[in-house]
Computed example of a mutant assay.
Amino acid sequence: MPAEWEPHERTWMAWPSAGYTLGETAADAEEARTTWAAVARAVARFEPVTVVVTSPDVRIAREHLGTDSPHEIDIVVASLDDAWMRDIGPSFVLRDGRLGGVDWVFNGWGGQDWASWEDDARVAELVTDVAGGAHLPSTLVNEGGGIHVDGQGTVLLTETVQLDPGRNPGLTREDVEAELARTIGATTAIWLPRGLTRDYDSFGTRGHVDIVACFSEPGTVLVHWQDDPEHPDHEVSREAEAVLSAARDAKGDPLRVVRVPAPRTLADDEGPVDWSYINHLVCNGGVVACTFEDERDDEALAVLRAAYPGREVVGVDARPLYARGGGIHCITQQQPAVPAG
């Protein structure tokens, strides 16, 4: 599985069309559509975007997505339950100059009682087929937000996702690692003990790594750093940093760990927030990053600019996404470019 900073063919997304993602009111629905479209248009500054849209929503999706982006935003029509493409779509891989799409078993983030996934479970195969890749089914219940790779054989993951009894009852670390080696070529797994606290609430994923830590280049990991001891993620950050600082990558080298400050905002009406600047998407020549109208936005974006030199960092207000259970990385999935020749 290539690293996210390697060249892309395009980015895939899914359009919010039903349920809690749209919300209970017309205003909620407009907020969701406007935010998903803002992310798509930000990504399309750097590379093409394809959005999977249900048939009844094609017209309204096109109105929001527009036709004036530097790169095309096209639409593929299919049935959907939800709009988190990182999790329902394939994890793309390259082998011998050919594209493949790993199709994890998707069961609604561990069989959450509010989730439906009959349509979403078919999205990875559909996207892979449209992309012209080989369909690579896996027996592992997993989501794209539950892994992060360096493109050289190292994968980050959390014990509470892949070892979740609601996902993979009875599997051991060794079982998970064997399947990750088979599917995405990961030879070294770095297990974080848990995700951010809010991610264990009703609409959470039970610990996705892509709001906790990510690689920014081989040998360097960015980690969410909550420095306020009043927030429960203060201890989560300390644990994650300790594990990463002691780890070695697939080449046997120690990691350089870079703290990315958490927003100053500690809580909303539902409790401690899990707002995270880690949940960004690296594009061709750019980075599309979460912002929160928070005093830490500028500081965090400066860290990302230093982490990805030569790329333009663009912020999009991600508060409506986090209110629905995720961020920018969660609603996007990069398709790597197949090397010429």
Rank of each mutant, 00 (worst) to 15 (best):
P2S: 12
A3G: 14
H8C: 04
H8I: 00
E9A: 15
T11E: 05
A14Y: 01
A14F: 01
P16W: 03
P16E: 11
E24M: 10
T25W: 13
A26C: 04
D28N: 13
R33D: 02
R33W: 15
W36G: 01
A40F: 06
R45D: 13
V49H: 03
T54S: 13
P56R: 14
D57G: 02
R59W: 00
E63P: 05
T67H: 09
D68L: 07
H71E: 09
D74G: 14
V76L: 08
V76G: 00
V76S: 02
V77Q: 12
A78E: 09
A78R: 05
A83I: 01
I88L: 08
G89E: 02
G89Q: 02
P90N: 07
S91H: 14
D96F: 00
G97W: 00
V105M: 14
W114K: 12
E118Y: 01
E118C: 11
D119Q: 13
D120K: 07
D120H: 06
R122I: 02
V123D: 03
A124G: 06
A124C: 08
L126G: 10
V127K: 10
L136Y: 02
P137V: 11
G145I: 11
L156M: 05
L156T: 01
L163G: 04
D164F: 03
G166K: 02
P169Y: 05
G170S: 08
T172W: 02
T172S: 15
R173I: 01
E174N: 08
E174T: 11
E179C: 08
T183V: 06
P193H: 06
G195R: 03
T197R: 10
Y200E: 12
Y200A: 13
T205A: 13
P218E: 04
P229F: 09
H231F: 09
D233T: 06
S237M: 09
A240L: 09
A242P: 13
G252K: 05
D253H: 12
P254I: 03
R264I: 02
T265F: 01
D269S: 15
G271T: 12
W275Y: 15
N279L: 12
C283F: 10
V287Y: 01
V287H: 04
T291Q: 07
D294G: 09
E295L: 13
R296I: 06
R296W: 05
D298Q: 13
E299W: 00
L301R: 04
A302H: 09
Y308T: 00
P309H: 12
G310A: 07
R311G: 10
E312A: 14
E312N: 10
G315C: 09
G326D: 05
Q335N: 11
P336I: 00
